[in-house]
Write a protein that binds this DNA or RNA. Structure first.
Lengths: 224, 224
DNA sequence: CGTGTTATTGACTTCATTCAAATTAGGTGG
DNA sequence: CCACCTAATTTGAATGAAGTCAATAACACG
């Protein structure tokens, strides 16, 4: 298994970039690794945003709740993804481990400081924010304008693309998680998947946590 | 499909940003002001992202389309808002003037360059991206989990908050725009507004483009 | 005033939800 | 390994919220 710093070679970027060959020995803001068990809470909506995070392994969900318990999962974060950045002092989401997950926690600092710092991580973080924004914008189109089947097809293809697999997706999240991500109910998620299976577009092996995409072309047609 | 470059803004060449000899690096993109008539296109989805924009006056909508014409308006941009930032070379949205609008166009540069430039605009832009992200995240909760009436109530309160008015909102956009922003149909938008009026929560003056919020407390209760 | 556009209202339909029940998966301890 | 238990998922039937289709009504402006 690879470590999160695979593509973050030497410095963390919180100070002006100096000398790549020399690793700062004290490293005050270098992130610390933390592990979370399946279902465990990483931070909570409204809590103080002392850190932001980068996924090393496993899957993390970030979500918002309405007062009556309705939930919207804005994103699933996979290895390499950065989540939990805030412009204010508070987290505007909750984050939980979907399966056993390992993350690196970085001490949060203001956007101002970050942009000024001009380091590797600074650029990574700005780029991560932009990626989050792009995903969010695509997801708004999905949530606002796609049918249940289109949502499921989009989700499967998108997830497959992110995992860069060969059509064999391991889905660590429950139907409830998928439903709360796509703005559906678990029953509708289940029915849509069953229907895709009957049509031979996907395969649902015995243990329901993995899915094989048999016919991506048809899925692509269903996506819109 | 549409050809991307048909209506790109009119000034000359599109080469990637290279420092013109005379322009100091601190102010790489002092923008040029442009006016757009109601309904006019500012840029188009898939078009080359040569500029990003800041609203001076009026209202701009940014939207994405599905192949069959379904549309999602991700945001309305008011005076002071920045829109049209992209991490890639292409616009992933269309932008049009909702009413007569004046914007400043800034020559686009890469996020890398921007962060490195460490200027006032850089910080403004990063902050604007973060604001867009936060709005998008709230909007996902609305689109995925709120009822029609809750969507309308949220929209009215949010818009009122952004305009910082005293409950007298001027809505420059059509019912179609509102519907495409909230993931509804024009009929449902109309019915919801009528119902709120019957309940005495809002007032719809004769010319349907302004709304008076009579009872924000009740609206707040309807919001979730 | 007409005329085209936008908004409202009504009747009906539909897709997704809700409620309910059956089935399956996964863990625990014998 | 198996029996048992609980939680997750699937399936079925009925309902409902929002959509569609269609017909006014109200503006906007030459």
């Amino acid at each position: 298994m690879q470590t999160a710093l695979t593509n973050t070679p030497t410095t963390n970027g919180f100070r002006p970039y100096t000398e790549p060959a020399r690793r700062p020995p004290e490293a005050p803001a270098l992130g610390s690794t933390r592990s979370f068990a399946k279902g465990e809470e990483i931070f909570i909506e409204g809590g103080r945003a002392a850190y932001f995070f980068k996924v090393v392994s496993g899957t993390v969900r970030t979500s918002k709740l309405l007062s009556d318990g309705r939930r919207q999962i804005d994103a699933f974060h996979l290895a390499g993804d950065i989540f939990g950045m805030e412009s204010g002092e508070e987290h505007r989401f909750s984050a939980e481990a979907v399966d056993d997950a390992v993350v690196i926690a970085f001490r949060r600092c203001s956007l101002e400081t970050l942009v000024a710092s001009d380091g590797v991580l600074a650029r990574q973080v700005v780029s991560a924010i932009m990626t989050s924004l792009e995903r969010a914008q695509n997801h708004m189109l999905l949530l606002g304008r796609k049918s249940a089947m289109e949502k499921i097809a989009s989700f499967l293809l998108d997830y497959s693309r992110r995992l860069d697999d060969e059509g064999e997706i391991d889905l660590p999240m429950s139907r409830m998680d998928i439903a709360d991500h796509l703005g559906l109910t678990i029953e509708t998620v289940s029915r849509s998947l069953t229907q895709l299976e009957r049509q031979g577009v996907i395969e649902l092996p015995a243990h329901r946590r993995s899915i094989t995409l048999r016919d991506k072309a048809t899925l692509g047609r269903l996506e819109t």
